[in-house]
Amino acid sequence: HHGSGALAALHADGPHAGLPVTRSDARVLIFNDWEERKRSEPWLRLDMSDKAIFRRYPHLR
């Protein structure tokens, strides 16, 4: 199991509170979210491209 239990660094406060600090933090969040959702949506594709990251977390651009 590759990303399970990996912890992402999140901004503690300010405008980005609760959001990932780096792209690799964002990838951890996206992976964990996908892993949760694919139980009920097995067709869901995992997209951890930069484009997917920016779409979801525009502050990382």
Rank of each mutant, 00 (worst) to 15 (best):
G5E: 09
P15F: 05
F54K: 03
S24A: 12
S4K: 09
A9L: 09
D25S: 06
I30F: 13
A8C: 09
N32C: 11
R56F: 05
I53H: 02
W34S: 01
E41A: 06
L7S: 11
H59W: 02
N32H: 12
A52P: 00
L19Q: 05
W34F: 11
A26Y: 04
R45V: 12
A12Q: 15
I30V: 06
H2W: 12
M48S: 04
V21K: 14
H16P: 03
L10M: 06
S40F: 11
W43E: 13
D33N: 07
D13E: 09
P20E: 08
N32F: 07
P15I: 07
P58A: 02
G18K: 06
L46W: 01
D50Y: 07
L44V: 08
A17K: 15
P42A: 04
F54H: 12
I30D: 00
R45A: 14
F31Q: 06
P20T: 01
R45L: 05
P15E: 06
A8N: 04
E36Y: 12
T22K: 09
R56H: 10
R56M: 08
V28W: 15
M48E: 03
A8I: 07
K38N: 10
L10P: 05
H2Y: 09
R39T: 11
H1W: 14
R39P: 12
H2S: 12
M48Q: 06
P42D: 02
G3N: 13
K38R: 13
S40R: 13
L44R: 05
A8V: 14
T22H: 08
K38L: 07
S4G: 08
R55H: 08
R61T: 11
F31K: 15
S4T: 13
I53A: 00
H11Y: 14
K38S: 08
P42R: 07
L60A: 00
R23P: 12
P58Y: 15
R37H: 06
S24N: 13
R56P: 01
A8F: 09
A12M: 09
A8P: 14
R37P: 00
P58F: 00
D50M: 06
L29G: 00
A6Y: 14
L7A: 09
S49I: 02
H16A: 06
D25W: 04
S24Y: 12
R27P: 02
D13R: 05
R27A: 07
F54W: 09
H1P: 10
L29I: 07
Y57G: 08
R45P: 12
L29W: 03
L7K: 10
D50G: 02
R27E: 07
R56D: 03
L19N: 07
L10Q: 15
R55F: 12
L7Q: 14
R23M: 14
R27N: 02
R23W: 10
H59M: 00
G18E: 04
A9C: 15
R55T: 14
D33H: 08
S4V: 15
R61F: 08
R56A: 15
E41I: 02
L7E: 05
A52D: 04
G14H: 04
A17V: 09
H11F: 07
L44G: 03
G3F: 11
E41G: 03
W43K: 08
R61K: 13
R23I: 15
S49F: 02
R27S: 06
D47E: 05
L29S: 02
W34I: 01
D50V: 11
P20M: 02
I30Y: 02
H1L: 06
A17C: 07
D25N: 01
R55N: 15
R61C: 13
G3D: 12
A26P: 01
E35V: 14
L29D: 01
G5L: 15
H11L: 07
L60S: 00
E36L: 15
L44N: 03
G3K: 10
A12T: 15
A6V: 10
D33T: 05
R55G: 11
S49Q: 04
E41R: 05
N32S: 08
L19R: 15
R61H: 11
R27I: 06
N32A: 10
V28C: 12
A9E: 08
V21I: 14
D47H: 03
R39K: 14
A17M: 13
R45M: 09
R61S: 12
Y57R: 00
S49N: 02
K51A: 13
D25K: 11
D33I: 14
H2N: 07
L29P: 00
Y57K: 00
A6M: 10
G18C: 07
T22D: 05
R27M: 13
I53E: 00
W43P: 01
A6D: 10
R55E: 14
L10Y: 05
A12C: 14
P42Y: 05
N32W: 09
R27Q: 07
G5T: 11
I30P: 03
L10V: 09
P15V: 09
W43I: 03
D33S: 04
P20S: 01
A9N: 15
L7P: 12
L7W: 07
V28K: 11
H11A: 05
L19Y: 05
T22A: 06
L7R: 12
A17W: 06
S24M: 15
W34T: 04
S4C: 14
L10N: 09
H59C: 00
N32L: 14
D13Y: 07
L60I: 02
H1N: 11
S4I: 11
S40G: 12
H16Q: 06
W43V: 04
L60R: 00
R56C: 07
G5W: 10
K51N: 13
T22S: 08
V21F: 04
K51F: 13
R55L: 14
A17Y: 10
W34K: 00
D33R: 09
L46G: 00
H16L: 15
P58I: 01
R39D: 13
L44E: 12
D47S: 05
L46H: 01
K51E: 15
L44Q: 09
W43H: 09
H16R: 04
L29R: 03
S4P: 10
P58G: 02
R55W: 06
G5D: 09
L46V: 06
R39W: 09
H16N: 13
E35K: 15
S24E: 15
H2D: 08
G3I: 14
H2I: 14
S24I: 10
S49T: 08
W43R: 08
G14R: 04
W43D: 15
P42S: 04
P15M: 07
H1M: 10
S24W: 14
D13T: 10
H2T: 14
W34A: 00
L44W: 04
N32G: 07
D47M: 02
P42L: 03
P42H: 08
K51C: 14
N32D: 09
P15K: 06
L60T: 01
H2Q: 13
P15W: 05
S40K: 09
G18I: 03
L44Y: 11
W43N: 09
L44H: 07
R45Y: 08
D50W: 12
Y57E: 00
I30K: 01
M48N: 03
V21A: 08
A26H: 00
D25T: 00
H1Y: 14
R61Y: 13
G3T: 13
K38Q: 11
A52C: 08
H59E: 01
I30S: 00
I53V: 14
R56E: 14
H11D: 03
R55C: 13
V28P: 01
L7H: 09
H11N: 08
A6R: 13
E36S: 13
P42I: 03
H16M: 10
G14I: 04
R39I: 09
D33W: 09
K38V: 12
W34M: 01
R45G: 06
D25M: 03
T22E: 03
G5I: 12
I53T: 01
A6I: 15
D25V: 12
H16T: 05
S40D: 09
D50A: 08
Y57N: 01
A12D: 07
P20F: 15
Y57F: 09
G14Q: 03
H16D: 06
